[in-house]
Nucleic acid binder design. Structure first.
Lengths: 233, 233
DNA sequence: ACCTGAACACCGTTCAAGT
DNA sequence: ACCTGAACACCGTTCAAGT
């Protein structure tokens, strides 16, 4: 009874969209620009205020706090994800399409990787994808809780595989690093581990982008095969 | 040439461990206590200083900055993970054991979920696990880059699946929520989506712990089956 | 060699006051 | 109804100064 209400922007009525002054959409749009340019830590209420040439604290009229603002921006991320119609192409292709789309969105908006899996996804765009994904797995032949298990497995894989990629990109971006130096560093750290050193000698460091993509596909095919196997037994 | 060196605690010589005064171990230990108690956002250099009854800035003698301190604490996380010897039990049981161990560590130290996948894992304990995992997948029959792909797939899955669980626990912890209220909230948010509503009616909300565990195992078996399939083709 | 406090440049958020 | 600035309670980090 005493429990604090679970709180989320999506559970409160939005403020009436009266014409004058700023609007939520405008604020969220500006926030996303800032996030894309400077990352999660680059978004502060003060900077955002400045960008909209208003006081930082004026934003609190439209948004309860920074977390709710992030919830709003976060839902926009889900709007960019696409799930092909499984009736057309079959569930495997649809699932694969969603997976690649999620990965691309994360790579395009690195800050989304800081929110995915951490923040409740109760916005309309997130729910739409969740709904489509449930229908996809039902069509594949899953029933009951397994529909949700399959969904969690797929999104869990994509997220867990892509996050390190995003983090790596970020680290490289603000260091404009040198491939050989990097390799030498890792060799130094891993000096005691012959199996790891063996790997470093491979061509991994030469075209990291291509290797990442192959790694993602390898894992994705494995996950889909594994899910498919649940259907026959 | 101009490139900033890739920087990590593990690439610098540690300060000589002279007897007097504080030590790195002591500082990292205190940091981990603070992290376990108050989470990542609960760790500040000032609080940590107070805990060690010294000025916040004294810590900078032992550690270049907060990030390096986190790198040190992060490696301790890897020390808690166990990988059964695949020679004894076969690679599938070993992989499964590692996966469950990773999950338990994340649940025990929720702050580690904020670091996993984001922070370079170049500490000795992390490398030891990476090395063991490579050997495990070699023994399974993988070769070349596929050894790494398999490893990335397994750890990606575990991490991506467990992170939302950790986040959920955290949200619930500081709200000591009410199950029915929660359910009602989600119903409200998902009002437009019949497929999602259908799921909410299921028993998911009654024993979330058990459901989480089943979900994790369902996905894990799928991933392992999918990896096994890569071996036969 | 080790530790200190003051200082700098930031945060999110509250709130009384303005229009 | 909307916006403001001052103020509060925090941050990480630098640096000159102490022992």
């Amino acid at each position: 009874m005493s429990a604090k209400q679970f709180s989320s922007v999506w559970l409160r009525e939005p403020r009436k969209a009266t014409s004058p002054g700023r609007s939520r959409e405008e604020i969220v749009g500006a926030a996303m620009e800032l996030l894309d340019q400077e990352g999660l830590s680059g978004l502060s209420m003060r900077k955002l205020g400045a960008k909209l040439s208003s006081g930082a604290t004026s934003l609190y009229w439209y948004v309860a706090n920074k977390d709710e603002l992030l919830e709003l921006a976060y839902d926009e991320i889900w709007a960019e994800m696409t799930l092909p119609d499984p009736e057309d192409s079959g569930w495997r292709d649809a699932a694969s399409g969603l997976a690649h789309s999620m990965r691309q969105v994360m790579l395009r908006h690195p800050w989304s990787a800081d929110l995915l899996g951490r923040m409740p996804a109760l916005g309309p765009h997130a729910l739409l994808i969740a709904d489509k994904m449930r229908r996809m797995f039902k069509l594949a032949g899953f029933g009951g809780l397994e529909i949700d298990y399959a969904g969690a497995t797929l999104t869990g894989y994509v997220f867990g595989m892509t996050l390190p990629e995003v983090a790596w990109n970020a680290a490289m971006a603000d260091q404009d690093y040198d491939a050989d130096e990097m390799r030498a560093s890792v060799v130094k750290a891993a000096a005691q581990f012959p199996d790891i050193l063996e790997r470093i000698d491979m061509d991994t460091y030469d075209d990291p982008r291509a290797v990442r993509e192959m790694c993602f596909d390898f894992g994705l095919v494995s996950v889909l095969d594994g899910l498919e196997r649940r259907l026959v037994t």
